[in-house]
């Protein structure tokens, strides 16, 4: 069985450090008015951005689980 350094640590690092960049980008876009949640089209973009983050998070988690237990 591979060690924590080969399994979940890279995953945690990726989504915590990467997530900080992602959240910062989202906050800047919303605060600056560039992503205006009053505009319906922009609201869709906002949720699509969140979906993208969750999509990769789940995809990586599933791939690690499959490698370890399947």
């Amino acid at each position: 069985m591979p060690s924590f350094f080969n399994t979940w640590l890279p995953f945690i690092y990726l989504y915590v450090v990467g997530g900080l960049f992602f959240i910062t980008g989202l906050i800047i876009a919303v605060k600056s008015g560039s992503l205006n949640k009053q505009i319906p089209r922009h609201r869709k973009w906002f949720w699509l951005l969140i979906f993208g983050y969750c999509f990769f998070f789940i995809l990586h988690a599933l791939l690690i689980t499959a490698a370890l237990y399947w």
């Binding site: 990467g18 800047i28 973009w45 993208g52």
Partner: peptide, 24 residues
């Protein structure tokens, strides 16, 4: 092995900066 793919699945973090900052 499969970890060669990781560079293809770590680009989403900067997409808000790009789509609502640099691109427009």
């Amino acid at each position: 092995g499969f970890s060669s793919s990781m560079a293809y699945m770590n680009d989403w973090f900067f997409i808000p900066f790009f789509m609502f900052g640099w691109l427009p």
